[in-house]
Design a protein around this nucleic acid. Structure first.
Length: 346
DNA sequence: ATCCAGGGCC
DNA sequence: GGCCCTGGAT
């Protein structure tokens, strides 16, 4: 970018006023609790998905104290389906720390916010700039795309030193101190640009307020940025799910260990092989096993090939940390999305 | 069916 | 650098 940084910030702020997003439920507030809750939910998750969860959480937990007072189970149940469940566990831990270490008030600086569980550098900066007007840079995935394109920043972001340099650039581009009251709008403007204009696939450069400053636009192929060499290679794993049901329809669900996939959630018992699943059943005769249709569930780093195996069993204890749950109890449990889907179809 | 986007923790 | 989940685009 050849123009002065001030020009960039000015244009982003001006554009946010006229063309940014203004009606989202976590906007038009400086309540750190709402901003924090929305920022955690929006990590790795689309706005359209977050909307319903946000209102449910706010209805049940109107403030950080009510969230801190809740059980982790209840938080996981409300989070069920959003994914990345460590976010929910950290959300709960964070609420408790805010109450116990900070008297129920969120700290007012990015530096202190970042000491809390689940709040990294970018989320801390988002909260501090939105709620307290702090002059501090965010750098989430959307903003990385905007800044690498505007700057023509072609260094590989998989290299930690390059990523640090981009953080430095993000800080350099902040509104000047005289415009510090513009920080909430500037931060929101960067997010809105990345989410609605500077898209990964088909950027709408004709609608972009900084296309005149943008190196990538001048080069002609904005999609060339950002550069990330890290190639995800996904492994594959087969798992067998024991779908045990009583005659009345109750299903045995057990808590998943922490850490690991679906940590802390309730789930059908998981086995590495069909033999291991069979070996786990109570001794003596039981109803025949019925193999359900296998399906694939994709995680970031591996494809899980899930093989449900159904069996009817008497109501006896099947293992530790589990219980029989009737269908009307399932919605109150934290269940992984594929298990929720499976039970819903069954 | 396959690919891809998307922060923080350990 | 590996690990965590889901939904949307293609």
């Amino acid at each position: 970018m050849t123009a002065a940084p001030a020009e960039f910030a000015t244009q982003v702020v001006r554009w946010q006023k006229s063309h940014g997003r203004h009606g989202l439920p976590w906007q038009n507030t400086r309540d750190p609790y709402r901003v924090w809750l929305s920022e955690i939910m929006l990590q790795q998750t689309q706005v359209s998905t977050v909307l319903g969860y946000f209102s449910q959480f706010l209805a049940r937990f109107p403030d950080v104290r009510s969230l801190a007072a809740a059980s982790l189970d209840e938080v996981l149940a409300l989070w069920s389906g959003l994914g990345y469940y460590s976010r929910a566990r950290n959300l709960h831990r964070c609420a408790r720390q805010v109450v116990e270490l900070h008297g129920g008030e969120f700290p007012r600086t990015a530096e202190l916010l970042q000491t809390l569980p689940g709040i990294g550098r970018s989320t801390a900066a988002a909260i501090a700039s939105f709620c307290f007007g702090e002059r501090v840079a965010i750098l989430d995935g959307n903003v990385k795309r905007v800044l690498t394109r505007v700057l023509g920043f072609g260094d590989d972001l998989a290299v930690a030193a390059h990523e640090r340099r981009l953080w430095d650039e993000a800080t350099r581009l902040l509104p000047q101190r005289a415009l510090a009251d513009a920080m909430p709008r500037y931060t929101q403007g960067l997010m809105d640009l990345g989410a609605t204009v500077c898209l990964a696939r088909n950027p709408s450069c004709l609608l972009c307020p900084v296309s005149g400053l943008c190196v990538a636009q001048r080069e002609g192929v904005p999609e060339n940025y950002p550069v990330k060499s890290r190639k995800l290679k996904r492994s594959s794993q087969s798992l067998w799910l024991l779908w045990a049901q009583t005659r009345s329809g109750a299903v045995w669900l057990a808590r998943r260990p922490t850490p690991g996939v679906w940590a802390g959630l309730y789930c059908l018992p998981v086995f590495d092989s069909r033999e291991a699943l069979e070996a786990s059943l109570p001794a003596g005769p039981h109803a025949p096993l019925r193999d359900g249709a296998a399906f694939t569930h994709v995680l970031t780093h591996k494809d899980l090939h899930l093989h449900p195996v159904r069996v009817q069993l008497p109501r006896a204890v099947l293992g530790e940390d589990g219980d029989w749950f009737a269908a009307d109890a399932w919605p109150q449990l934290g269940l992984p999305a594929p298990v929720r889907k499976l039970l819903g179809e069954g």
